[in-house]
Amino acid sequence: MEVRTIKVFTTVDNINLHTQVVDMSMTYGQQFGPTYLDGADVTKIKPHNSHEGKTFYVLPNDDTLRVEAFEYYHTTDPSFLGRYMSALNHTKKWKYPQVNGLTSIKWADNNCYLATALLTLQQIELKFNPPALQDAYYRARAGEAANFCALILAYCNKTVGELGDVRETMSYLFQHANLDSCKRVLNVVCKTCGQQQTTLKGVEAVMYMGTLSYEQFKKGVQIPCTCGKQATKYLVQQESPFVMMSAPPAQYELKHGTFTCASEYTGNYQCGHYKHITSKETLYCIDGALLTKSSEYKGPITDVFYKENSYTTTIK
Rank of each mutant, 00 (worst) to 15 (best):
V99Q: 08
E2R: 11
R141H: 09
N16P: 04
G164S: 03
I223R: 05
T159K: 15
F242K: 01
L133H: 03
Y138Q: 14
N110F: 03
G267T: 11
Q134C: 09
P131H: 04
K95E: 15
T55N: 10
K191E: 15
S50L: 12
K218V: 06
G257I: 02
V236H: 07
S246R: 05
A69D: 08
K158E: 00
V22S: 08
P300G: 05
Q197M: 10
P224Q: 12
R83S: 08
A146H: 07
L153H: 04
K229E: 15
A205T: 04
P248E: 09
K201Q: 10
N187L: 12
N110W: 04
L153N: 00
L65N: 09
T169I: 09
Y73A: 04
E204Y: 11
D287F: 00
N178C: 09
V221H: 09
G267R: 06
S79K: 15
T169M: 07
V22P: 10
N89E: 14
F9G: 06
Y297K: 05
Q30I: 12
Q238A: 02
A69E: 08
Q20G: 09
I6Q: 10
A250N: 12
D23K: 14
S279Y: 02
E2C: 13
E162T: 05
S86H: 06
N49W: 15
E168P: 04
L88T: 04
H48V: 12
T258E: 15
S246T: 00
N14W: 08
D180N: 15
H176P: 02
S50C: 08
V99G: 07
T76S: 13
A40I: 13
L88P: 06
K293Y: 11
H48D: 12
I152V: 09
M26P: 06
L163P: 11
G299Q: 03
T10R: 09
V58K: 07
D109H: 07
F305A: 00
D13S: 06
A205H: 03
M207E: 05
T302Y: 00
G210E: 02
G299D: 05
A132C: 07
N178G: 07
C182H: 01
M209G: 10
L173G: 04
P130M: 03
D13M: 02
E168F: 06
K307I: 11
G202F: 02
Q251T: 10
L151M: 07
P97A: 12
T211S: 12
T116V: 13
E308N: 14
I277P: 01
S310W: 11
C182V: 04
K280Y: 09
C227T: 02
P78A: 15
D38Q: 12
F70L: 12
S310G: 07
N187A: 14
K307Q: 15
H176K: 10
Y269T: 15
Y252V: 13
Y265P: 00
L88C: 04
S310D: 14
Q238M: 01
I152T: 10
C156E: 01
R139M: 13
G194I: 01
Q270K: 09
D63L: 07
I152D: 03
D62M: 07
C149W: 05
T282C: 13
D41A: 13
A205F: 02
Q134N: 10
A150W: 01
E162K: 04
V21Q: 15
P131C: 05
K218T: 06
Y36Q: 05
T260E: 10
P60G: 07
T260V: 14
Q31W: 10
A289Q: 12
E144D: 14
Q222W: 06
S50W: 15
K201N: 09
V42S: 08
V185H: 05
P131R: 07
L59P: 06
Q238G: 01
M170D: 01
E204L: 08
L254N: 04
K106P: 05
L200C: 12
F9M: 12
C271M: 11
T120P: 02
Y72M: 11
P300A: 11
Y57P: 04
T282N: 10
K183T: 11
F128Q: 03
T232Y: 10
F32P: 05
K7I: 08
L291N: 13
A40R: 13
T159N: 09
Y297D: 00
P34R: 10
G33V: 03
D41I: 11
V243P: 00
H48S: 14
S294N: 10
V236E: 07
Y269H: 15
L290I: 13
S246H: 01
T11K: 06
R66T: 09
V160T: 05
M207C: 09
Y311P: 08
V221R: 04
F148Y: 02
L179N: 00
D13N: 09
S25V: 10
T35H: 00
A262D: 01
G267Y: 09
G288K: 04
V304R: 00
L283N: 00
T27A: 11
A250D: 09
T76I: 14
T198I: 15
H256C: 15
